[in-house]
Simulated assay, not measured.
Amino acid sequence: MSHHAPAVSDANTVSAHPQASLLRYGLLAILLALLLAAPFLVYPIFVMKLLCFALFASAFNLLLGYTGLLSFGHAAFFGGAAYFTAHAVKEWGVPPEIGILIGMAGAAVLGLLMGLIALRRQGIYFTMITLALAQMFYFFCLQASFTHGEDGIQSVPRGHLFGFIDLSVTTNMYYFVLAAFLIAMAVIWRFINSPFGMILKSIRENENRAISLGYSVVHYKLGAFVMSAALAGLAGGIKALVFQFATLTDVTWQMSGEVVLMTLLGGIGTIIGPIFGAGLVVALQNFLATSDFPVTVITGVVFMVCVLLFRRGLVGEFYGSRIGRKLGFDHRV
């Protein structure tokens, strides 16, 4: 009897996988359909803001969830790219796609410089160094002439994508943001499921063992740091075009804390988690903005409840639940 039980269990597991795969693909198809229809159902600017922050949180999760590095300096990449993109598009007159690439390149260079300094230390020391470096960049943005100080860069033209798609039309802008978001998420998925991503996970789980196997841990961490910075820069550059301005708000330490909050709420180490967490925070901010309730207090209460009741985040707890395991959900979705 005992000899047949594992075989039955294995058969059930194998038979469950096709159903789980179909369910995952079905949910993704429904989500994609909703995103395609969103500008006709919801205020498009709100959805574009949600997509920008979902990408920002996903970029941050690449570092925290898959590499085990907690950075408190990601606002420098997000806000820095917003400044670089806004300045390039408005002052240099470059097309929007080139402006976004300039923002990403600037964020990647910032990530390389900050990573080279911060990765000399580990744990809380690494986190504090990233915070200190981000604050230095904040004061640079406050004093630099091209950022216009507290006024920021305003009236940023959206321009024409590839020379013929007018992004001043809200619908065109929305589908551009959606396309950029989907491409970036595909890149993140491919990255974490590549041999490079597998090594990052091994570093997160047991760094000493990864070193003993001959991997240059610092180089892999630096690669993840720069990749995360560049994708955060993509989110910041797009946001600058959506709202047509870049301000100091995007480079403050509060923005770094906000992206940590989004990622933890959704669930670190998952693809959907940061997107869900970003959606929850942005929706709360949007709907509470016109009410008498203090947004930060409500967000803090939600975060506290989720930390106490859902230690792995909302999506992470669902994946770990009996239903999630039965449906075959894992870190890939």
Score class of each variant (00 low, 15 high):
A240S: 15
A5G: 00
K201G: 04
G73A: 09
A246W: 04
F329E: 11
I183H: 05
R311Q: 14
I188R: 12
G152I: 05
G197F: 08
V302G: 02
E205A: 15
A59V: 03
G111M: 04
G324T: 09
G273N: 06
V187R: 02
G163I: 07
T67N: 14
G197M: 05
N61I: 04
L110Y: 08
F181D: 07
V307F: 02
L309M: 14
M304V: 11
A38Y: 02
H74I: 00
F176R: 03
R312M: 12
K239H: 15
R24N: 08
V187A: 11
L314Y: 07
W92E: 11
L133E: 00
G197E: 08
F40I: 02
L309I: 06
M48N: 06
A59N: 04
I298K: 05
I192M: 07
V259H: 11
A118E: 08
A16G: 10
I192D: 09
I203Q: 02
P294R: 08
A5E: 13
V187I: 15
R325T: 09
F303A: 13
A75K: 04
A186T: 07
K49R: 13
M114F: 14
I192G: 11
Y215E: 10
E150G: 02
G223M: 04
A38P: 10
V226L: 03
A75I: 06
G214P: 01
Y25C: 09
Y215V: 00
